[in-house]
Lab assay of single mutants.
Amino acid sequence: MATGGRRGAAAAPLLVAVAALLLGAAGHLYPGEVCPGMDIRNNLTRLHELENCSVIEGHLQILLMFKTRPEDFRDLSFPKLIMITDYLLLFRVYGLESLKDLFPNLTVIRGSRLFFNYALVIFEMVHLKELGLYNLMNITRGSVRIEKNNELCYLATIDWSRILDSVEDNYIVLNKDDNEECGDICPGTAKGKTNCPATVINGQFVERCWTHSHCQKVCPTICKSHGCTAEGLCCHSECLGNCSQPDDPTKCVACRNFYLDGRCVETCPPPYYHFQDWRCVNFSFCQDLHHKCKNSRRQGCHQYVIHNNKCIPECPSGYTMNSSNLLCTPCLGPCPKVCHLLEGEKTIDSVTSAQELRGCTVINGSLIINIRGGNNLAAELEANLGLIEEISGYLKIRRSYALVSLSFFRKLRLIRGETLEIGNYSFYALDNQNLRQLWDWSKHNLTITQGKLFFHYNPKLCLSEIHKMEEVSGTKGRQERNDIALKTNGDQASCENELLKFSYIRTSFDKI
């Protein structure tokens, strides 16, 4: 039985969820670079991206490699990797027998973001014989899940209580170790020597080791999670996991709180800001991140802002960003909400898709409305799209047979046209069989910064309504002859009103 693990408890099935942008060198404390989270699957090609990484700022997932063999891993080693800020997950990587050479110096898994409450997941690794993470000293947050690894031993010899604050939620089941077939031998045991430290858990006094050649490092209890030197002297209180010299914040392997210019500090002093819960960055760093993602459509890219001495992905609820200094300031009234469309555009074809934009005031991208039916549609669209004030790209209304009016965009005031449909149009209306009105132009103002209007096959939309939009939106004169079809717009509506004058002759039985 794995020490510190839980057996036999019912657990939810383990679901495996399925960018080499360097964020800056980590400095003297770390020998390499800070790398983003990685999802490495199918083959070993991307694994080489770990070569210079000291910190993975995010998670590391290595999974679904069915053609790899043990010899493929023999020359692979990433000794610079010290810390993973989120979680480490391995799933069905064939041929991998140990992690001792792959990650010989991995010391800390912070667990800032977890995989279903777990910071370390080893699942269905069919050839893994031992973990071998002999320098792993601290899992700051989260638990361990090690399950269905039929060859995995050296679990009962690990004292997880020396690595985690609590072992109650560890789930370590259905491994070879369960069948008591392992016969784990710690260093020196074969020669009758006791080389590794022994600890007591559940009444068992057991030597602690990761492999037959690597003991588990056990520091004096007084050192807590700070770690200790090879001689057993406690590291500085700002260290986490390990250090090369005692009581020196510049000799830590990793930091308990924050890293700044080669030393570990309790908090980031001005003019620095907390970033990702582990390091200090200056304003320029946060500003660069903001600008890199301002026009990016890459998933996970955030326009970072500053709030409460932190550089964070977005302002919290009730705050909006001051564009001059990136500071989050309290909103006066309802907060603006910028919604970034991942692929640059979004099609609204149902109430469900409209709900995804609920509360958005600025759309960074283009909207395509293609709704053919739905219950209580006008009210639903207004509830979900009615706060949109600005669209950076274009607005396209296409084959939306259920629409009679666009009044559900009740606050839309600006279409920038930074991206144009077919390279020309910022407003595009095609084949809307029941569209009769755009907006009530006596109450609604709309500016279209650039781009043209396109109207074709809107049989109940009168040309007068379209011409009014040209005047109000500032697009009059931009359109070419064929942009607004004269014969297919309003051709099934009563669009022309003329005053009919009647004269009559009164007659009676005795007068003409």
Rank of each mutant, 00 (worst) to 15 (best):
residue 29 L to H: 10
residue 29 L to T: 10
residue 29 L to W: 10
residue 30 Y to C: 15
residue 33 E to K: 05
residue 33 E to H: 15
residue 39 D to V: 14
residue 40 I to W: 13
residue 49 E to Q: 13
residue 51 E to K: 02
residue 52 N to I: 04
residue 56 I to K: 00
residue 57 E to I: 03
residue 60 L to H: 00
residue 62 I to H: 04
residue 64 L to P: 02
residue 64 L to W: 01
residue 65 M to A: 12
residue 65 M to H: 10
residue 65 M to L: 07
residue 67 K to V: 11
residue 68 T to N: 03
residue 68 T to G: 06
residue 69 R to W: 09
residue 74 R to F: 05
residue 74 R to D: 04
residue 76 L to Q: 04
residue 78 F to C: 08
residue 82 I to K: 04
residue 88 L to I: 02
residue 88 L to A: 03
residue 89 L to S: 04
residue 91 F to L: 02
residue 93 V to K: 00
residue 94 Y to R: 10
residue 98 S to L: 01
residue 98 S to V: 02
residue 100 K to A: 13
residue 107 T to Q: 04
residue 110 R to S: 12
residue 111 G to L: 01
residue 115 F to P: 01
residue 115 F to H: 13
residue 117 N to W: 14
residue 121 V to E: 00
residue 122 I to R: 00
residue 122 I to H: 01
residue 123 F to A: 01
residue 124 E to W: 02
residue 128 L to I: 13
residue 130 E to T: 09
residue 131 L to K: 00
residue 132 G to F: 00
residue 132 G to E: 00
residue 133 L to S: 15
residue 135 N to R: 11
residue 135 N to W: 03
residue 138 N to E: 01
residue 140 T to V: 08
residue 144 V to G: 02
residue 144 V to T: 05
residue 145 R to T: 02
residue 145 R to V: 02
residue 150 N to R: 08
residue 152 L to V: 10
residue 155 L to Y: 03
residue 155 L to T: 07
residue 156 A to W: 12
residue 157 T to A: 09
residue 159 D to A: 03
residue 161 S to E: 09
residue 161 S to V: 14
residue 164 L to Q: 07
residue 164 L to D: 15
residue 166 S to L: 12
residue 169 D to H: 11
residue 171 Y to T: 11
residue 172 I to E: 02
residue 173 V to R: 13
residue 182 C to F: 04
residue 184 D to E: 13
residue 185 I to W: 14
residue 187 P to T: 12
residue 188 G to S: 11
residue 190 A to H: 14
residue 190 A to I: 06
residue 191 K to T: 11
residue 191 K to Y: 14
residue 195 N to M: 09
residue 197 P to C: 08
residue 201 I to H: 04
residue 203 G to W: 02
residue 204 Q to N: 13
residue 204 Q to P: 03
residue 209 C to T: 00
residue 209 C to G: 01
residue 209 C to Q: 01
residue 210 W to S: 01
residue 210 W to Y: 02
residue 211 T to Y: 01
residue 212 H to D: 07
residue 212 H to M: 02
residue 214 H to D: 07
residue 217 K to A: 09
residue 217 K to R: 08
residue 219 C to K: 01
residue 225 S to A: 08
residue 225 S to R: 05
residue 226 H to T: 10
residue 231 E to L: 08
residue 232 G to W: 13
residue 236 H to V: 04
residue 238 E to T: 05
residue 238 E to A: 10
residue 241 G to T: 05
residue 242 N to R: 09
residue 244 S to P: 04
residue 245 Q to L: 07
residue 248 D to E: 05
residue 257 N to Q: 12
residue 259 Y to P: 01
residue 260 L to A: 08
residue 262 G to A: 10
residue 262 G to R: 07
residue 263 R to W: 15
residue 263 R to H: 10
residue 273 Y to A: 13
residue 273 Y to D: 05
residue 278 W to C: 03
residue 280 C to R: 00
residue 282 N to S: 14
residue 290 H to M: 09
residue 290 H to L: 06
residue 290 H to F: 10
residue 291 H to P: 02
residue 297 R to L: 11
residue 297 R to H: 13
residue 298 R to T: 14
residue 298 R to W: 14
residue 301 C to R: 05
residue 307 H to N: 15
residue 308 N to V: 11
residue 309 N to E: 05
residue 311 C to Y: 02
residue 312 I to F: 09
residue 313 P to W: 14
residue 314 E to A: 13
residue 315 C to F: 00
residue 316 P to Y: 08
residue 319 Y to H: 12
residue 320 T to P: 05
residue 321 M to Y: 04
residue 322 N to T: 07
residue 323 S to H: 13
residue 325 N to G: 14
residue 326 L to W: 02
residue 328 C to Y: 01
residue 329 T to W: 08
residue 329 T to G: 15
residue 332 L to Y: 03
residue 333 G to W: 13
residue 333 G to C: 15
residue 333 G to R: 11
residue 333 G to V: 04
residue 334 P to M: 04
residue 334 P to K: 14
residue 335 C to L: 04
residue 335 C to Q: 03
residue 336 P to A: 05
